[in-house]
Design a protein around this nucleic acid. Sequence first.
RNA 1: GCCCCCGUGGCGGAACUGGUCAGACGCGCCGGACUCAAAAUCCGGUGACCUCGCGGUCAUGUGGGUUCGAAUCCCACCGGGGGUACCA
Length: 935
Amino acid sequence: ALAGSIEERWQDRWEAERTFEAPNPAGPMAEADKVRSRPKRYVLDMFPYPSGTGLHVGHPLGYIATDVYGRFKRMDGYNVLHALGYDSFGLPAEQYAVQTGQHPRVTTDANVANMRRQLRRLGLAHDPRRSVSTTDVAFYRWTQWIFLQVFNSWYDPDLRRARPITELVAAFEAGTRPTPDGRAWADLSPVERREAVDGHRLAYLSEAPVNWCPGLGTVLANEEVTAEGRSDIGNFPVFKRSMKQWMMRITTYADRLIDDLDRLDWPESIKIMQRNWIGRSEGARVSFAIEGADAHPSLTVFTTRPDTLFGATFMVVAPEHPMLDSVAPAQWPEGTKPAWTGGAATPLAAVAAYRAEAGGRTDLERQSDRKDKSGVFTGAFAVNPANGSRLPVFVADYVLMGYGTGAIMAVPGQDERDWVFAETFELPIVRTVEPSDGFEAAGGKAYASDGVAINSGFLDGLGVAEAKRVMIDWLVEHGHGESTVTYKLRDWLFSRQRYWGEPFPIVYDETGLPIALPDSMLPVELPELDDFSPQTLDPDDAASEPLPPLGRVTDWVDVELDLGDGPRTYRRELNVMPQWAGSCWYELRYLDPTNTEAFVDPEVERYWMGPESPGDPGGVDLYVGGVEHAVLHLLYSRFWHKVLFDLGQVSSEEPFRRLFNQGYIQAFAYTDARGQYVPAAEVVEESRGVFSWNGEPVNAEYGKMGKRLMNSVTPDDMCRDYGADTLRLYEMSMGPLDVSRPWETRAVVGSFRFLQRVWRCVVDEQTGQSRVVADDVQPPDEATLRALHRTIAGVRRDLESMRFNTAVAKLIELTNLLTKLPAVPASVADPLVLMLAPLAPHIAEEMWSRLGHAETLAYVDFPVADPALLVEESVTCVVQISGKVRDRLQVPPTIGEDELRELALASEPVIKALEGREIRTVIVRAPKLVNIVPA
RNA sequence: GCCCCCGUGGCGGAACUGGUCAGACGCGCCGGACUCAAAAUCCGGUGACCUCGCGGUCAUGUGGGUUCGAAUCCCACCGGGGGUACCA
């Protein structure tokens, strides 16, 4: 209760005094003197989505951590930028609105307001001026502008960077770059010119297989589809369908996205996840001649094992492979085994039937028959360029059109999948790498490890790595192939058939080709639409068509504009951008939220995010958030940032220089006999591990906190019962920030007690006055002073490295020491309060003011340890015999090795324990340890 | 299947680059003070086993190894979590 009023008072005062507004070097928020006198630090939380259900205590964990760190750095003399905005466009917001039957604008605003209230109660030191929302027109105007930047640029593979599209057009015009079909630029029609240019844009329309989710009425990015082939949101079935959609050419940045990970201070696990997702693999492209084919004289495959070319015994193409349209002969060739035909009378019929069957299968069904592979012979033969052997070409759905060339050379001797296929279809198996001893005896089939090449002509005797090199050289020399790199990463599907997102600043003319609106026509505002929900579609109907809600706003769709050649009627793009668009650049808008001339002032961007040394990619100084965005947001935003860097719009090459992954707060949940969840708050523990609810026994589980498991604990309840400071302190002391751990409401009292103890150290509970004594009345004793400075050094180290749990422990230890003193001297109380301030700012401010300070402590210097007081005057030295402690000596820390050895050997218990045995060695680690090893 | 991370009291967790008898700090539990009582608060105890006690033995998932010395390094296994999956 006392905590509540104190906390509210300080929150009001911080707001009134604009305590946490961070000055910029330029623009409307410029305060040159404040900027000049301090180094900067940009501290950032991952962009929250304002959920309709409100926060539980797990949500603010990261926000509290960044706040503690930011407050610490601010006190330590830094200009700290810390702000929080709202990622309020997107599917979840729209789903919530559909559920509640309200317009997403209404629910989003209400959710943001509720979240602001909940977060304000926690005393987070944010600059409120910078709290942008992606749904603000003033924000998404710039999201659209950045989209146009991407649209109006192309990737130059020679320079390895994006360039303005105008430079590409200039190259076409000048003839320094050939047109797609080799004709002169001047001979192309206007439409042909546009198509040629559009083929290079980093944002482009493409008819391609996409993830169609009728249950959501929209297409989804690969990253939004789960391993089970369902939607990340809503868990609806997802189908592969060919559709015309907006794509972003993220694959052109694959190498840079991988390479620059090395320059980032990120958790290794996240880097590994990104590397795996991008999936760079080096290998070779090999062309195989097709016997007697005119339309497709050759078939190109990608392989990471060109060294096994001699072991290729058949070929496989994906069901979607275009060569299948023309390659199948009219009759089964001689030598066709019955098992190859799939029961069809002709290859044409067999291929057609197989393609139809494969097309109707979901990804999940495809995955299920991994053990026994399906496929049919196409009737065609390819020629192995290495040894001239005839290889039957099969079609099978274990080969994916989306990876490599959609065709493989099958090497059953060295590839498990090919081995299975070869066994099923009675195809020959040739080993071209000698397996290790005992491999076959142990039942080993395909051998994928290193070994010596055999049955491989000129490769025989070489190891795998050397054989790869020799084979690639051979392929190049004879014109059969070349070394190449392939990625798992696909281009990013960027359009959604929903309502609640940023409209594209794109219109179409009668050619159906996209036209970018000029900057002057931004923003393209999202039109009001009463019925915003997507057309209801059967979630299992793969053949349904997307119907963008914006298509229903007919007076918005068809628009008359003058784009330079007089007023004409255009049709607007009906799709909206995906959820990720706003979060791809919001950290830049925090820097300069009110700028109407640019998305960010270059000087401001350079100040907060620019590189600080050669090789430094720049970016946010500390970014804290959960691992769930390892490959979504963190990959997309790196891509956008790099495009902006290439175009000279930002000085930093990367958005987030240092990343810290917080763990999750988990919680226990309980189910009754029917398996239903019961309110966890009402469950009582009968005895160890035995729980009941309403007298009924219940089972304990462990999982995420949330409504579904009925185990949410809200920060509001915690603030009401204990105060925000206690909640903050508890969350910081539960364990290391990067580790997940269970919430235990009953343990919160420990943090509460600690704050009370500190309070009583400083404030007289009866009078409310300070009970700290001036140093000239009673100076601190030596031991207290040493403990204080040891604590200062330790707490500084811990806060700097985000080890908040041990920082709290050290403050508790010091406080427990002080409670034993008759009175606390001012020179100890002041630093204690200051050290507590980042963690528990309200109570610290209150004590600071009662200690006689008028100003907020937010900018008071964080205590610095006196090195002289950190040096112990004496150290306990352990004397061991064979690792067992036999004696302890009090010695000066500066004691020499020889002296210590003498001292240890002279020790009474040591002599006794040795019993006159010979000494083999004496290990001395002055000043803390001596280990005597008897013979 | 492959890749990554983790395994310490009843619980959350400490332990700097291998070096004090592992278990800081907190929760819980046990005992005590205050109270008519309870709550709150405060004080003390609390890894296991043996022992009246002094003291001893065993303990960082399991089994080996390296080392004067291992929670920490290496190998194998067991258990848990995450990522990814017919990626050629």
